[in-house]
Simulated assay, not measured.
Amino acid sequence: MLMVVVSGLSAGACGPEGDLDDSRHLEERRDKAISFYDDRQDVYAHPDAALVGLAINSTPTMMNVSGAPTPAQVAASQILGAKEGLCSGQRFYNDPTLGGCSGVLIDDDLVLTAGHCVWTSCGAEDWVFGYYRTNATTVASMSSEDYFTCNEIVLNRRRESGASFNEDYAIVRLNRPATPRFTPARVAFGNQPFPLGQPMAVIGAPSGIPLKIDSAGILRSQYTGGLFKSDLDVLGGNSGSALYAQGGYTVAGVLFAG
């Protein structure tokens, strides 16, 4: 089950204060355009204990590493502000950018992600749990118990491989079971569609930074073949993120575009 997310993030270049007039004007017309409010929150700051638990216990991040990142590696990694050329003061400016794609644990040793994040056989897809902030200045310590390598690509419906546009998902088998240390998320199943307006949430690593939760989305539209759209704040790095139907906290889809 797949989805496209329509993001509500604004973008602009650094410059003199007067250059911001247009963005302020759009902000004032929020009801007539789109929302420019960034609803992403760090794991430690989010008020929903169930979503926090899913972030900590069910959400690995793909990284190009050879072992769990040490605190020194986290501290030495390129920060988001430098990587993206952000203005000082932008949210998450000092976050490290160790992540690649996102994923979700759906069985003892299976991770669901986007098809374009992996290939038909294992490459450098290492998966690390515990990539989140415990407070405003600290990323959680990660150990060898949190680090997994790819053992097998169980399946991959990847658009570049001839699948249709609304088929972009993959299942990766890890080199060992992640349970009981980590807990698989529950996956929605059956043919009953979610209703329009269904509250939605996303958990992932936008731009490769530590996990963020956005729980302010709703289901906007649905199409044949399992494709649906929601208004959640996502960026590159969120590919493969689980989209949760709030209420039952079940995985309703996987992010592949936005």
Score class of each variant (00 low, 15 high):
R158I: 06
S88H: 09
L26T: 00
A75V: 07
G130P: 09
P177N: 15
E125M: 06
V6Y: 00
Y132N: 01
S143G: 15
S23I: 15
D126R: 13
F194Q: 09
G12C: 04
R158M: 03
L174I: 05
T138R: 01
L9C: 07
V202S: 08
A114W: 03
C87P: 03
V111T: 04
T113W: 08
A245W: 05
N64V: 07
A201V: 00
G89K: 01
I153D: 02
S144V: 03
D146N: 15
V234W: 03
L112Q: 02
S23N: 09
N64A: 13
L211Q: 14
L80Q: 09
V111H: 04
T61W: 03
N238H: 02
F228W: 10
F189C: 09
L86N: 03
C87D: 04
T97K: 05
P96S: 10
G99K: 08
E125V: 10
T59A: 02
S241T: 02
F92V: 12
R133F: 12
Y249Q: 00
Y44L: 12
A170L: 11
N156L: 07
T137Y: 01
C150M: 14
L2N: 13
T138Q: 15
Q192P: 03
N238D: 14
E84T: 08
A72G: 10
S230N: 11
S77M: 05
L2H: 02
A114R: 01
T59I: 05
S10F: 05
T70A: 11
I209K: 11
I171A: 15
A201C: 02
G89P: 06
C87W: 04
D31W: 11
V234P: 03
E152L: 14
N94W: 09
G236K: 13
R157Q: 07
V202C: 04
L235I: 14
R159W: 10
E152F: 02
T224D: 14
C150Q: 07
T97C: 11
A245L: 03
D22K: 08
N191V: 12
Y249H: 08
T59V: 01
A140L: 11
D108R: 07
A11S: 09
S161G: 01
I218E: 14
V251S: 01
S10T: 14
G237C: 11
G247M: 05
A114G: 08
F36A: 05
N64E: 15
V254T: 15
S10N: 10
I213E: 01
S77Q: 11
C101Q: 04
N175F: 10
S207G: 05
Y244W: 00
L51F: 05
A13R: 14
W119T: 15
G8R: 08
G248S: 12
D21K: 11
L255I: 09
L112R: 13
I218G: 12
T59N: 03
G89T: 06
A188F: 01
P16E: 00
S10H: 09
R186N: 06
C14H: 04
C122H: 14
A82H: 07
Y244K: 00
Y147L: 12
A185D: 01
D126Q: 14
N166E: 15
Q90E: 12
F148K: 02
P199L: 04
R159A: 13
P16A: 13
T138E: 15
N166L: 07
G85I: 14
L211E: 07
L54D: 01
Y93V: 04
M142S: 06
E28C: 07
R91W: 04
V187D: 05
V128M: 09
